[in-house]
Write a protein that binds this DNA or RNA. Structure first.
Lengths: 224, 224
DNA sequence: GCGCGGCGTCAGGATCCCGTCAAGGGGGAA
DNA sequence: TTCCCCCTTGACGGGATCCTGACGCCGCGC
């Protein structure tokens, strides 16, 4: 049916999830910590990720942050923490659903079905190539003519959000919310400043953008 | 930001939701029972629906069933029932998320944000093709012979409203209200000006419109 | 033939939006 | 501590977009 990456450090729960998901017709890949989770995700190209927030090495939100720039599929977060601030944090960091432990297996499967229904058909190719520069979303690296280009975290977030939907127009609100978080939807200055910086670093002619184009009054668009 | 339809029979909760959602920058439409929910959904074209399962007239799943054939946006279900079989049932009936009452407002908003993030690539057909031009609603892009055509936000609003009902007549009042908002129903000048611009950009012979036709005294019609 | 309402067309000015630059502040590294 | 990088914020000029009014045309009814 689809490939699921399960990330959890509890071997017992991992085993139970593997059996249940297999029985439901999924192919299962597992990881027990954050680093191997990111590695497995890049290597196995899963359709869905089930992610436990309580990992030994990395914080769950760090894994989410490492995943989201290039992984377009749904991420379902598992956690023992029932506090709603934790939920809000994880959801805003890019999670699509949040289930508290202990949970019912049937419900988990139903939530996965609901998420898969919405699955973006876009190919989550971790590397974007143009005539002038190459962006490796998974490795967080940009190169022009083989020379690496240094981007600040904010520049990177903005670029990643634009590259996730090549050719599609991305509204300024969506960009602001994705990069700066909810509550910054009005700060369109930020977009102007950072788009300018990105264009200076990536565009062959920053005054006449070819890749990072502006649609006045609506948003921005990355055209390959 | 986006239009939310809230369906609940508890006036107090309805009021709280309305206030919270407004504060978060959403436009709010409400309904207190299943039948008016379906009517409102058809009339107001919401982006998201928040649906209480315990309604006086219809069962929540019936509302879902009535909504889903044509409504592609996210539906978040509210319910007092915590049993996981209820959750599975609702999720498999087409709900995208299931929150049990009582719930935290911040969490609800975060879940709505997560759902809206996914909303863009709908399962419906977001591309309209004619012999002379192609309109990609999701990417907000128009092309003629492969060459992109730039439209202003107002032109987009008008075109999108006309394309939502291919072949059907759209009244001027409906167009004005959809694009300029309530209170502009008399400004038929606007329609003349912007229809003119659209025709100049899209029609092969702007003087004799083939796709964006006028019905004198009634409105306009897009004929594929 | 005549008047009238609705529509298409055009152009000008006000307003909003975008690109650009530079200065200030905060946090992390040396 | 000091330094440096990055983020934020404000200001300004130029350009695009929107609104507005005017004019002429056409079809309809009288």
């Amino acid at each position: 049916m689809s490939r699921v990456l399960v990330v959890d450090d509890d071997p017992q729960l991992l085993r139970a999830l593997r059996i249940t998901l297999r029985a439901a017709g999924h192919e299962v890949v597992t990881a027990a910590d954050g680093r191997s989770a990111l590695k497995e995700a890049a290597a196995a190209h899963p359709d869905v990720v089930v992610l436990d927030l309580g990992l030994p090495d990395l914080d769950g939100t760090e894994v989410l942050a490492g995943l989201r720039p290039w992984f377009a599929g749904p991420v379902l977060v598992l956690s023992a923490r029932t506090d709603s601030t934790d939920k809000v944090e994880a959801l805003d960091a890019g999670a699509d659903d949040y289930v508290t432990k202990p949970f019912d297996m049937g419900e988990l499967l139903a939530r996965l079905r609901a998420l898969s229904r919405r699955a973006a058909p876009g190919p989550d190719e971790p590397v974007v190539v143009t005539d002038h520069f190459t962006v490796d979303l998974a490795a967080k690296q940009v190169t022009m003519d083989g020379v690496p280009v240094r981007l600040t975290p904010t520049e990177w977030g903005l670029l990643a959000e634009l590259l996730r939907a090549p050719g599609r127009l991305v509204g300024q609100r969506q960009l602001l919310q994705a990069v700066w978080g909810p509550g910054y939807e009005r700060e369109t200055n930020y977009l102007r400043v950072y788009l300018n910086q990105l264009r200076r670093k990536l565009e062959p002619d920053p005054a006449h953008p070819r890749y990072l184009r502006t649609e006045p009054g609506m948003g921005y668009r990355f055209t390959p």
